[in-house]
Amino acid sequence: MLPALVPGRVTHARRMPVRHRFGHRTYQWLVDVDELPRFGALASFSPSDHLGSADRSLRENVAAFAAAQGIPLAPDDRVVMLANARGLGYVFDPLSVFWCLTSAGDVRCVVLEIHNTYGERHAQLARPDGDGRFSVGKDFYVSPFFSVDGRYDVTLRLDPERVSVAIDLTQGDQRVFSAAFSGRPRPARALAVLGVALRTPAATYQVWALIRIHGVWLWLRRLPMIPRRRHVPPEGV
C-alpha cells in the first residue's frame, strides 16, 4: 500500500585509509510518483527537488530521463520512489531510488539520483538482475575524500516485507566504502506520519548535520581531500 513510511537504519563503513563506521535510525518514504502525498509542513514532494524540469511532473521527468538513456517507459508503467520528503521547509536527499515497473510488476529499469552537499545532482540508469543487483561507474563527486573513479555495486530490494538499498564502492581492486539502508514499509497514515516526525524530528536537517559532523571528524584525522570540479549532469538531469 502506497504511500508508505519506511522506518529503518542507515549504515556507513569506510575501510581505508582511515576506518570509520556509523549507523543511526531514520526513515524514508516509498511513494508512487503519480500519487504524491502531502502532509503539510511534515512531508511533501516536489519535482524541483529531483531530476528534470520543475515545470513537469516527477513521472514526466523520470520518463524523459529513461528515454534519453534508451529505455522508454510504457504509459501503464508504474514509477515508485524511495526518498526523503521535504519537511519543515527543507529536504536533503543523498540518494533517491526510482523503480520503473511494468504493469505486470516486473522491473523495467531503475534510476539512482544522487545529491551532494554542493547543490549538484547526478542520475544513472541501470537494469538489475533477478536478485536486484547491478554495477554502475562512479561518475559523480560526492565525498571530498573520494576521487571520481571506480564502480558502485548495488543491491536493491522492493517488496511488502522489506525495502533496502546496499551500495559498495570499489576503487582499484579494493572495496573502500559501503552504505546501506533497510526498513519495513508500513502505510503512511496521519498518525504514523506524526509518530515518525516526533521520534525523528527534522530528519533531513539531521542528515545534513551528520554529513558535516562526520566530514569534520575525517578532516581532523588528516584524511586527504580531493579537489572538486564542476559537475555537468547527464541529459535530463
Rank of each mutant, 00 (worst) to 15 (best):
F39M: 09
T102S: 15
V154Q: 07
S147M: 04
V18F: 04
V136C: 10
D131H: 13
V97E: 06
V97C: 00
P37F: 01
P144Y: 01
G70M: 02
E60K: 07
S143L: 12
G23C: 08
L95N: 08
V136A: 11
E235T: 10
T102Q: 03
D77Q: 13
L30W: 00
G89Q: 12
Y205R: 06
G130S: 00
L223I: 11
A54Q: 09
A209M: 08
R121G: 07
M225W: 09
N61A: 07
P224A: 00
I167W: 03
V62A: 02
R221Y: 10
R127D: 02
A13P: 11
F145G: 03
T11M: 15
A64M: 13
L158T: 10
S103W: 13
P233D: 11
A68E: 13
S57T: 15
R184Q: 14
A85E: 06
H214F: 11
A43S: 09
V18I: 15
N116I: 04
L210Q: 00
L95I: 12
R229N: 14
Y27I: 05
E35F: 05
S57R: 00
F65C: 05
D159G: 09
W208L: 13
V80G: 05
P185M: 04
F181Q: 03
H24E: 12
G130A: 09
L58C: 02
P17Y: 13
R78T: 14
R157N: 02
L5W: 00
G183H: 06
I167V: 15
L30M: 07
R186M: 14
L5I: 06
S103L: 12
Q69T: 07
A83I: 02
G150F: 01
S182Q: 07
A43N: 03
D153V: 09
I211G: 01
Y205C: 07
F134C: 12
D32Q: 12
S53L: 09
Y90K: 01
A54P: 04
R199W: 10
V136M: 12
E113A: 08
V136D: 07
M81W: 03
V176H: 00
V80T: 09
